[in-house]
Amino acid sequence: MAAVEGTRSAEQWRRYLAEYSADVLRVAADDELGQVSDTQRASRWLGFDGASAAQLALLEQRLGTALPPSYRSFLAVSDGWLNISTFMWTLRTTGDVDWLRDADPDLRDILLDGATPAEESLADRALLVSGDGDAQYWLLDPGDVSPDGEWAAYIWASWYPGLGERHESFAALVDTERASFEQISGRAGRSVDPEGAADLVAAGRDLALRGDADAAADAFTRAANKGSGAGAYLAVMLNAFRAPATVHHEIRNNILAHPHVIEEVGLDQVRAEAVPLFLHRSSIGPYRKLFAGILTEEEMEAIDGFTPPLLPEPRDFREALDRGRQLLRNGLPDHAWAVLEAALPSWHSDSPHRVAPTVLLTDPELRNLITPERARTVVTMPRGTSAP
């Protein structure tokens, strides 16, 4: 996606929106396009005819001010829009764009509840440019104007406190929401731009085995945003060591909720790693539907007795695991960790979907030995064939 900072001309909007429309229509699910007409689908244009000069002048006369350039040129290309982002389904037209205080006084009162003085001031002067959305509202601020005449833009949503991120202009807000759409679509396995995903996974794996966990996580995340199930899975598995206390949320949101991840990685590996990691931190109760096809009904009913399959480990590392367990049973946890730490450089896997010995976090005996500091050590120590 090529973004244009600050202002955006009508011609730039026309090219930009044509590309964006094509992306949305190509990857969005049908139930996400309920308001899109057959004509719009055929023309691959989620907008409408542009507002005339007379319509724009009438709007500015009604508001008592000139519109910011990037928003004015947008309306000149399309008077309204559908599916401008994942959570914003319609934008207002020149006929119903208005100050928030006049367009929806009840909404203004809701937004003022618990607002800071700065947010109260913004609510009194903001221009409401959005229509239907998922409990979010797009606001332009005439009290925060750039040298080129652009007004700062915000999203005010019910599902996070206060104002969202400040954007330099309406065009910058659309850019951010388009990037979010691409990320969300990729995470769902409907990539807008899949090119390069496999290379990112390969680079991430090499970085991970060299011990550069942070750079590896970034590569895997970028691959996941391009639709790679392997990238999504490996990002979570690295974060099992980088942020073990919250990894169950990532497993739920980024693995279990996305069948393409499970299909690409393989059910056995998900059962061996992701499932026990999740169950160690969370109850299965509210999430039974996510486990359908992963666990049997019998396993879900007797979840405390679930025994994950074992993944193959190198012989030397497997022997270190056995010695570590025995030392733990003998009451020597520091000795057990010393044995495991010494064996880490020899750990490797032939699977392209493994970059760390997650058995250290899934084994009922060994996982209590792995503090957050030790977990970080595991993934920052070079391992396997990429070790120097």
Rank of each mutant, 00 (worst) to 15 (best):
Glu365Leu: 12
Glu298Thr: 00
Glu150Met: 00
Ala272Arg: 08
Arg374Pro: 12
Ala115Val: 02
Gly211Ile: 06
Val24Ser: 03
Gln136His: 00
Gln55His: 10
Arg187Trp: 12
Tyr137Ile: 10
Asp144Gln: 15
Gln61Ser: 10
Ser43Gln: 15
Gly50Leu: 11
Glu60Ser: 01
Gly34Asp: 07
Leu321Lys: 05
Arg101Thr: 14
Ala28Met: 01
Ile303Gln: 08
Ala215Trp: 03
Ala197Thr: 00
Leu344Ala: 09
Gly266Tyr: 04
Val27Ile: 07
Gly293Ala: 06
Leu310Asn: 13
Ala208Ile: 07
Pro309Cys: 11
Ala343Trp: 13
Thr221His: 10
Ala123Trp: 10
Thr65Gly: 09
Val378Trp: 15
Glu319Gln: 14
Ala320Tyr: 04
Thr94Ala: 13
Gln326Tyr: 12
Leu366Asn: 09
Asp79Leu: 00
Pro333Cys: 06
Ala216Pro: 13
His353Trp: 11
Pro388His: 11
Ser85Asp: 07
Arg252Val: 08
Asp199Asn: 05
Val275Thr: 02
Ala213Phe: 02
Ala2Tyr: 11
Ala240Asn: 09
Met300Tyr: 04
Pro333Lys: 04
Arg242Thr: 10
Trp13Ile: 14
Leu366Pro: 15
Gly64Ser: 13
Leu140Thr: 05
Ser351Arg: 03
Val201Tyr: 05
Leu340Tyr: 10
Ala179Asp: 14
Ile294His: 00
Asn330Met: 05
Pro382Cys: 12
Gln12Lys: 07
Leu75Thr: 06
Pro308Asn: 06
Glu5Thr: 06
Pro314Glu: 02
Thr371Trp: 06
Ala115Thr: 00
Gly95Glu: 14
Gly331Cys: 07
Asp132Arg: 02
